[in-house]
Write a protein that binds this DNA or RNA. Sequence first.
DNA 1: AATGAATGAGCTTTCATTCAT
DNA 2: AATGAATGAAAGCTCATTCAT
Lengths: 216, 216, 216, 216
Amino acid sequence: MANYRPIGLLIMEKSSLVNPLNARQRILDAAVNVLAQHGYTGAGVQEIVDVSGTSKGSFYFHFSSKEKMVMALVDRMSEKLIKATLKNVRNEPTPLGRVVTGIGSLLSTFSKRRKIAHVLLINVLGHGKSNDMKFLPMREKFSTFIKIELDNAISVGQIEPQDTELIAHMWFGAIYEIIMRWLIVGQPNPLTDATNTLILSLLRSVGAPDQYLELS
Amino acid sequence: MANYRPIGLLIMEKSSLVNPLNARQRILDAAVNVLAQHGYTGAGVQEIVDVSGTSKGSFYFHFSSKEKMVMALVDRMSEKLIKATLKNVRNEPTPLGRVVTGIGSLLSTFSKRRKIAHVLLINVLGHGKSNDMKFLPMREKFSTFIKIELDNAISVGQIEPQDTELIAHMWFGAIYEIIMRWLIVGQPNPLTDATNTLILSLLRSVGAPDQYLELS
Amino acid sequence: MANYRPIGLLIMEKSSLVNPLNARQRILDAAVNVLAQHGYTGAGVQEIVDVSGTSKGSFYFHFSSKEKMVMALVDRMSEKLIKATLKNVRNEPTPLGRVVTGIGSLLSTFSKRRKIAHVLLINVLGHGKSNDMKFLPMREKFSTFIKIELDNAISVGQIEPQDTELIAHMWFGAIYEIIMRWLIVGQPNPLTDATNTLILSLLRSVGAPDQYLELS
Amino acid sequence: MANYRPIGLLIMEKSSLVNPLNARQRILDAAVNVLAQHGYTGAGVQEIVDVSGTSKGSFYFHFSSKEKMVMALVDRMSEKLIKATLKNVRNEPTPLGRVVTGIGSLLSTFSKRRKIAHVLLINVLGHGKSNDMKFLPMREKFSTFIKIELDNAISVGQIEPQDTELIAHMWFGAIYEIIMRWLIVGQPNPLTDATNTLILSLLRSVGAPDQYLELS
DNA sequence: AATGAATGAGCTTTCATTCAT
DNA sequence: AATGAATGAAAGCTCATTCAT
């Protein structure tokens, strides 16, 4: 029960006082915190259930294993993140406009939710015995989003033809690294201070026209 | 003792008959292989000493902990790597020429030494209970190298003044991501296929003059 | 609810629509199958209620513990078995005739109901923390039946006086072992192939007269 | 360390006082006691190492799993038992003489070592999720010994030809049951009181000649 | 310097049982 | 009567570290 703080406690009905949210949700919520603090290996099931105010039995009733639970968590978080990003991007008329807005949205979201960034980007990489990317759906999704818009930008003549796949990964890597540094060494603070330089540089890297650079 | 096979055993001096290399070295050598295969958490001290042909006692005689041993290994490897890179770069007359050569050298080295890339870039991230950068000296060293040369490029007028610290990290991130994909997904194969696009894009991102871009 | 399929659902009375058999019965039926397949320790309450189409709550409403449930099951099964055996034996005029028929009946029944044999003879032996005979009422009942008829055989002069208690247990052990081998090794197949040799040997072991041996 | 009692303590050297026997041996010794008391499932690794005065780490250093440890124990015990039995039997000139002596030897040994009988005959049957005979090497070995000597008895004309395989299993079952009853209900006491009746009955069951019966 | 048996806290996972509904 | 989410003690097993030799 330790440090679990339900929101809107006052307006809940009597029977909900003990278990304001269902156990599954509370476990996932607790897991974000514990994973952000200790990483995949360091996050013990015991600590997660202690923080969530549930029990090991409940944990394994709702999830078939610790790994599956983290996968569910990462999936949920990255899906939300991508959805929110795509929503913000919807009204932009041009491909480059959409990438730029998308990147800004990503930085802004992470800036507000440090722990989520931690879990999605750091803790679950290279855990345990496997080195695959099963915990990194966001990596693929965001890179693909960038690639598609760069391809569109080529189609509509915003930029010249080039290897968009490789460049999309470079862009993702550049963004990722900036977020990582913010997570680990705390700079820049706030993270969003990096937005302008980051976007300007990325646009230049694909030879976006000066006029576009000025507008952004 | 399993698969450790000293060469040229017969011509070694008496004291070396049992242990042709000193134990410390053999442990570090074995650790590269085991870490590359299983990651930090997955690499057991037992397996490392088995592969090295030494013993647990020897391991803890030479290193105070598994963590310290990996730090020593990563330090040694990243130092060698940076030294080799800087050496290749020495004869380049211009700052941008030096970064370009440095990046090419890095990709070329990793391309030939996959295991080293694994250990330096993947396995030691997000391991265990700590989330700091103690295992990533290369990150800092290579980013600093980039920053210094970008600053030099500004001084000599190759590029306009800009936030070189942030951009150096972006560059590192972009390079890192390309190497990571190569390690995990296997593309591009060989890794060095990415060199030209990568360098061209990076140079463009800092507004390097067209004439320089053509020359490279 | 998985694979439970009531037959003749449509003609059942109203109160039976949901649960064509009462839950207690369905749990016992499911338990036979699960115990035969996985043994006492391996048979989880969860699996039993899944197969029975009931619930944990129902299970513990009808039985105070898993152990008690298995005892009830074994009691029911062994009682039925003994009753069926005694019924088959009723018309035999001589004591030895009755034992012989009883043994034949037992082998024949088990041969047709492998699962019951499994539960009654194997799964409940040496389980968990207890080593007593609480799960083996059949052992006692069948041995007693043998002993009584051997005593009768002595009374009527079919065989010489001897330690019928010990011999009854020997007979039971011999029969039990043959059934066990059939269950585990699958031989003889069918089990009833063993009947003649088994009975002949047992009769000889108490010195039954040749004339009787020939008749049987 | 609990109830471990080394023998011959007084003549041991100083350094042996703490660990009079090696850990592997002490674990096996402790396991006999714990298995005899609680059965396979009920015997926890923790309890075994507590009783043995060792540790879980030591347990898993010497045995790769609890199952393997019990297999090693059962193998060792049954091998010793069979060896001792065969040795006692060596001087008997006739096949039937050898079986009779062997059975007597078995009963006599078990009579003196109740716990070994428990482990070999009861505790490891039907454990866990498997129903195979991996823990019952003695069953096979002793049955085979009986079969071979019965075959020999037929060869030398001591008994008539008959299904020795089936009969060997019957004999084993009869003997097993008598020992089981002694283990569980404590009768007959001592176990060896059963020897004469048991052997006489078994010999009769294969039609051994009266003269032989008298001699035994 | 080197050995490897020994340690024990820690891990993930299971499961008979309980209880609010 | 019935449900099934919740419980928590206990299970088998791992592994970095220690230490007598």
